[in-house]
Design a protein around this nucleic acid. Sequence first.
DNA 1: ACCTCGACCTGGGCGC
DNA 2: TGCGCCCAGGTCGAGG
Length: 292
Amino acid sequence: MPELPEVETVRRSIAEPIAGKTIVDVEVRDAYVLRGQPVADFQSGLVGSTLGESCRHGKLLYFPFADRSLCVHLGMTGQLTHRIPSRTDTPFLRHEKTGLERTLQHAPDKHTHISIRLDDESCLHYRDIRKFGRVFWVPESERTGIVSRFRLGVDPLTEEFTPSYLALGLRTRRTAVKAALLDQRFIAGLGNIYVDEALFIAGIRPGRGAYRVRGRMIQDLHAAILLVLRKGIAAGGTTLRDFVDGQGQAGYNQEGLLVYGRYGESCATCGETLKRGTFGGRTTTWCSVCQK
DNA sequence: ACCTCGACCTGGGCGC
DNA sequence: TGCGCCCAGGTCGAGG
């Protein structure tokens, strides 16, 4: 779930409430999400630090301090929410028709692995059902340091993401264009949903060799990537099951998806039945008529 | 160096 | 109602 638009949605929803707050306590219920980092180091490294800017590069959310950064990667089911004690807790509720979970803030449960208490009594909770996500601090405090530590490619919402950058990266790859776009060292932030959507809008088959995407297709793909990401952010992210923003709200971008998850349904453009296959190890949906 | 595949973890949905 | 099986948005390391 959490691809660039979802992570950006989380960032925006918590940035203001936590800015200027100082961490007074860090509770780690399940050290698995720290991936080997000693719990005591994690706690002592954070307590006393004051949160400033909330940053994002690709799918990575990070909070820089003077000489280090708190990093959060949501994996598949991670949720970072800001809980205010004076507000009433509600359980996770499933919408009857859409099946989507939402909550207006909830107390920590068995999936809430880390709680970071701030000096205004509010709390940042990291909750992650499948535990593919990670939370930890690193010694870098600037974007360049973070980007090189995690070997992240350009963030597509920065000016570094140009048609020529896209062209150069695709030209040198022998894999399917779908797999190339999922490579975070090339472009940081795209995942299975937004890649399928962008390739559909650009009219390019996911199985096409990356090096065979050229000329006009580059311009179309570049524009399509920006379009789907911006649309996703404007819709508050795509909630297929677990995604909520920092305030517990589900997104609604799933309502506007053109191909992802619509295998067997008809193409919105031409009516052809959408196909399904595997590229880059991921389930992929496309229209064999509209995508060449 | 590049690429593919399985592993990591839990829960939901479906068929029997 | 219950069990087994398959599937899921992301990454990482092993091995070809």
